[in-house]
Amino acid sequence: MAVVQAVNSLSASSPPVVNLLRCLVLRVGAFSHVGPGVGAAGEASSRPPVGSGFRTAFSLMERAVTKATWKGRESVWREWQDFCSRLGVDGLRGEVVPALLCFVGEAFEKGVSASGLVKKLAGLAYWFKLLGVRDATKDFVVRQAVLGYSKSRVARDSRRPVSFDLLVKLVGVLGLICSDGYEEVLFSAAFALAFFGAFRVGELVSHSCVASGGLQFGDVAVGVDCVSCFLRRSKTDQSGKGKRIVLYAVPGAAACPVRCVQQFLAVRPCLQPGGSFLIHRDGRSLSRFQFIAIFRSGLDKLGLPAKEFASHSFRIGAATEAVRWGLGEQMVRQIGRWESERIRSYVRLELL
């Protein structure tokens, strides 16, 4: 009963977590009833740790990946449960392969991109493994359906890159957009760092203005002709080894990363140690929403279609400009911390 109480004590706002915990308990035979849509219980052969320890272990599994990845896995688990409920099948046992084929077919009919489907199936594969059932996503017929899916729906990512020239123009119009001089300096630094550091926006700024996130104050060091940023964790560095990113000065450029960061530090309020590096005058963190909003406003002011760009355009621009400047693929990989062949999809010279 202690395990049941621990599971039921979880927040009701996260039903996928509750159901998954129940499935995990079922896997080791802790109790005989797991609720609708999860599966029938088996015979108890051993008993798991009880109370908060079991819940803590699940929390540690959650911390093994980024919040965005975990949220995506929870979402696809909920989607899978709802889908199987509509079909009237057990999502873990029995006719799982036919159900997956129907799942793939429905995704195609809804217009889900090939990459979106792959992410969904990767999420399901994770839960299948975690719950100790056969990973049906690797079944031959499912893989063939996914292969046909990818060949039938090739959707090229058409987000345009932020070129160096565009970056300079964006910094130049911030005075017409931002509420005061401090904000102008803040966003100049944010845009320059995003471009020259090839940052993902989540690595650079906080997800919320009331939370500390993104690049931290203690992780930034400024020299005479360079800025050093220590990236604690990234999408390709889940173990948290960290990566030192050094950005060098671009003499005479208004969007020079060293110049922009130095100007920001000259006006940044002196608060308690730690916290987000990019903050407003009142100490609130620069948020993802605010970063994108000012970026879009800048594009509008320049007469460019904001819908053709995204926050990732800075990272795309870093790769594209690096290639245009004659840097080899290995050097470009180092700039953006890319580890796969996907780097080539970031180079979009035709969209500059």
Rank of each mutant, 00 (worst) to 15 (best):
P273M: 09
M61W: 12
V142W: 09
S285R: 09
V76D: 15
A2H: 13
G317I: 00
N19I: 03
V25K: 00
K235S: 04
L231T: 01
R281Q: 13
E321Q: 15
E62S: 07
L299D: 04
F195N: 00
V347S: 07
G35L: 14
G213Q: 06
S163V: 03
V18E: 12
A57Q: 12
S287G: 11
Q238A: 14
F31K: 02
L286W: 08
L186W: 02
G72M: 05
L21D: 00
W77M: 15
G275M: 02
G105H: 07
R244M: 14
R93V: 08
L349S: 07
V205I: 03
A306F: 10
P48V: 07
S311N: 01
I316P: 03
T69N: 05
A68T: 15
L302S: 05
V162I: 15
L193W: 02
L327D: 05
R259W: 11
L170C: 05
V205C: 10
V7L: 13
P305S: 09
R156Q: 14
E74A: 03
R200A: 06
D165H: 10
R200V: 00
K169C: 07
G29C: 06
V258P: 04
C178Y: 02
E184L: 04
F314W: 01
I279E: 01
G242S: 11
I292L: 11
T56P: 00
T69E: 04
G88H: 05
S113L: 09
A255C: 15
P273Y: 10
F195S: 02
L60N: 13
S158F: 06
S115I: 13
G132W: 04
W80F: 05
V201N: 09
F289S: 14
F314A: 02
L170N: 00
S228K: 13
L265Y: 08
L349F: 08
F103V: 07
A40P: 02
V76R: 01
I294P: 02
V332N: 03
W325C: 13
N8H: 12
D157Y: 04
S45P: 02
V332L: 08
I245D: 00
W80T: 02
V258L: 04
V162S: 03
P269G: 10
S212N: 15
S208A: 14
F309P: 03
R281I: 01
S276N: 07
A44P: 12
S14M: 10
G42T: 11
I279V: 15
D237P: 02
K301F: 09
A41I: 10
R342Y: 09
M331T: 07
A189G: 01
S297G: 11
F196K: 02
G111Q: 09
L271N: 06
S52L: 11
S285C: 07
K241N: 14
S287E: 09
P48T: 02
A44F: 08
S206V: 06
Q290I: 05
A155E: 12
A30M: 08
S188I: 01
R344H: 15
C84G: 04
L87M: 11
